[in-house]
C-alpha cells in the first residue's frame, strides 16, 4: 500500500484581522506523487505550504507528513521536507555555497558532510561555478535554482515548491522541469503550486484546484483533461476562396488565413481536416487554443462562482 506523504484533514486558517484563508481543507498526497495545487492569487496555496513547513500556525485541523502529526512532532516532520518558497528569502550578502551549507547545518548536517553533498547538487543546477558569488549578484533564474539547491541539501523525501518558475524564462523553466521530473522519478514526492497551468499539465500526475480556501476538485490530471467535452484549436489555413461552411463544427474565421474551431468530444481532428480538405483548404498549422487543464480550471472556477 502506498504511504501518504501528506494528509490534511479539516484544515482551517483564520489570520489576525479575520481573513479566512482556509475553510476546512481535506487533501491527501501519496508518496512518490508529483502533485499540483492550482489556484488564483489568494486562494490559500501559500497558507497550506506555510502550515506544512511551520511558518504559519493552523487554526484548526490535522496535518500529517509521512504519518507524523505536525502538532505532536513538527521538527521530526520537518526533517523530511524541503521547501522552495515563492519569494527569494536568502541573505543576499552571503555566498551561494554558504547559504546552502548553512541550511544543511540547520538540519543537523555537519559542514564537512554538507560540503560533500554540495558539489553534485550545485553542478546539476548549474551553480557550481557561482559557488563563491554573493547571492545578490545572481540572475533571477540562478536565485530560483539556489533556493532549489538549498531545499535539497538535506535529501528531503518531500519537496514543496511554491511557484518555482514564476518570472523564469522559457528555456530555464524547461530545464527546471526536467530536473524536477528526474528527482520525482528517483522517489522524491513533489508538491507544486503554480499559476502556470501548462506547468501542472506537463509535470504532475495529480492536481487539486483550490478556490477561496476550499479544494473544489482533486483528481488525476489525465482524468480531468479527459472529462472536457471540447477543445478549441487555432488553425492556419490557405486556399480559402469565398465563404467557409463547416456544418458539423463550431468555428469562427479570424481572418482569411486563421480559423478557430471547437472540436467536441465525439468529433475528431481527422474529421475536421477531412472537412477542410473537401473544401480544398490546406491546413498549414494546428495548435490547441488553450491547454486542457487551463480550460478545466476556468470551467471549475466559474462553476463554483455560480
Amino acid at each position: 500500500m502506498t504511504k501518504k506523504a501528506i494528509e490534511i484533514i479539516g484544515l482551517k486558517k483564520t489570520y489576525k484581522g479575520g481573513t479566512q484563508a482556509l475553510k476546512k481543507v481535506d487533501l491527501i498526497i501519496e508518496e512518490g506523487d508529483f502533485f499540483a495545487l492550482l489556484g488564483a492569487n489568494g486562494a490559500g496555496k501559500t497558507t497550506i505550504i506555510g502550515i506544512l513547513t511551520g511558518i504559519v500556525l493552523k487554526t484548526e485541523g490535522h496535518v500529517k507528513i509521512f504519518d507524523i502529526d505536525i502538532e505532536k512532532d513538527h521538527n521530526e516532520a520537518k526533517k523530511l521536507v524541503g521547501v522552495v518558497p515563492q519569494e527569494f528569502n536568502f541573505n543576499i550578502f552571503e555566498k551561494v555555497q554558504d547559504i546552502v551549507i548553512q541550511q544543511a547545518g540547520y538540519f543537523g548536517i555537519s559542514r564537512k558532510e554538507a560540503k560533500k553533498k554540495l558539489e553534485p547538487i550545485l553542478k546539476i543546477l548549474d551553480l557550481w561555478e557561482k559557488r563563491d558569488t554573493q547571492a545578490m549578484k545572481l540572475s533571477g533564474g540562478m536565485k530560483r535554482r539556489l533556493m532549489i539547491a538549498r531545499a535539497l541539501i538535506h535529501g528531503p523525501k518531500l519537496l514543496i515548491l511554491d511557484e518555482p518558475t514564476a518570472g523564469v524564462d522559457v528555456e530555464l523553466r524547461h530545464s527546471m522541469w526536467n530536473y524536477l521530473r528526474k528527482i520525482n522519478q528517483e522517489g522524491t514526492t513533489i508538491l507544486l503550486t503554480t499559476h502556470y497551468i501548462e506547468e501542472a499539465e506537463a509535470l504532475c500526475k495529480n492536481v487539486a484546484i483550490i478556490k477561496s480556501g476550499k479544494i473544489i476538485k482533486c483528481a488525476p490530471v489525465r482524468e480531468l483533461t479527459q472529462s472536457l467535452d471540447s477543445q478549441s484549436y487555432t488553425i492556419e489555413i490557405s486556399g480559402l476562396n469565398g465563404n467557409l461552411e463547416l456544418k458539423e463544427f463550431e468555428y469562427s474565421l479570424i481572418d482569411s488565413e486563421t480559423l478557430e474551431v471547437v472540436v467536441k468530444k465525439h468529433q475528431s481532428i481527422n474529421e475536421l481536416i477531412k472537412a477542410l480538405d473537401t473544401l480544398n483548404i490546406t491546413v498549414n498549422d494546428l495548435t490547441p487554443k488553450e491547454n486542457k487543464l487551463e480550460r478545466l480550471f476556468l470551467n471549475l472556477v466559474t462553476e463554483s462562482k455560480n
Partner: peptide
C-alpha cells in the same frame, strides 16, 4: 530579508 524562514522550516 525573510531568511529566518531558513531555520523556521528546519528542525
Amino acid at each position: 530579508m525573510k531568511n529566518y524562514e531558513e531555520f523556521m522550516v528546519s528542525p
